[in-house]
Amino acid sequence: MNNTLLTTNEKSVLSALNKEHLTSFQILNKVENISMILSLYTIIDKLKIKGALKSYMKENKKYHYAA
């Protein structure tokens, strides 16, 4: 994926997911420029549409990772 097509917040989320799979709450705690969970969900949805992020369920928790 071409990083120039990503917003600063999208890049921050992908950076947090670069080395590990995280839940939404864990991402929110790692990314300083996003303070609201609803904003994060919007960013996650946009990244999924762009094919840059994928998710899965494990032990009733949703984990996200950079695709």
Score class of each variant (00 low, 15 high):
K11F: 09
L5D: 12
V13E: 14
K54I: 13
K62D: 03
K61D: 03
E59P: 11
M36P: 11
N3K: 03
I44S: 11
E32H: 03
G51M: 04
A16R: 00
N60W: 01
A16L: 04
A67L: 06
V13Q: 05
S12F: 11
H64P: 05
K50I: 07
T8N: 11
L40S: 06
H64R: 02
N18W: 06
K46N: 15
N29R: 00
S15L: 10
S55M: 12
K48T: 11
K11M: 06
K58V: 10
L28D: 07
I49A: 15
K58T: 12
T7W: 11
V31Y: 00
V13A: 12
L53S: 08
N9R: 13
K50H: 10
F25C: 00
S12I: 07
L40P: 04
V31L: 03
K46Q: 12
Y56H: 14
M36N: 03
G51L: 03
L6D: 14
F25V: 02
L22E: 03
E10P: 12
I27D: 04
A52L: 11
K61T: 08
T42P: 08
M57D: 13
L38M: 06
N9Y: 10
L53W: 09
D45H: 13
S55F: 12
M36G: 07
D45Q: 15
K58R: 04
I27Q: 01
L14M: 07
V13S: 03
T8A: 01
N3D: 10
K11R: 05
N3V: 04
S39D: 14
Y65M: 00
K54F: 15
S15D: 07
K19Q: 07
A16T: 01
L22A: 02
L5V: 09
N18Y: 07
N33V: 04
E10S: 12
S24A: 09
N29P: 05
L6P: 14
Y65F: 11
N60T: 04
F25H: 01
Q26E: 09
A67E: 12
Q26R: 02
K30R: 06
E20L: 04
K58G: 10
V13W: 05
K11A: 06
K30M: 04
Y63W: 08
A16V: 09
N2W: 08
T23G: 03
L14S: 02
K50C: 15
E32A: 09
A67C: 07
M57L: 13
I43S: 15
T23Y: 01
H64M: 02
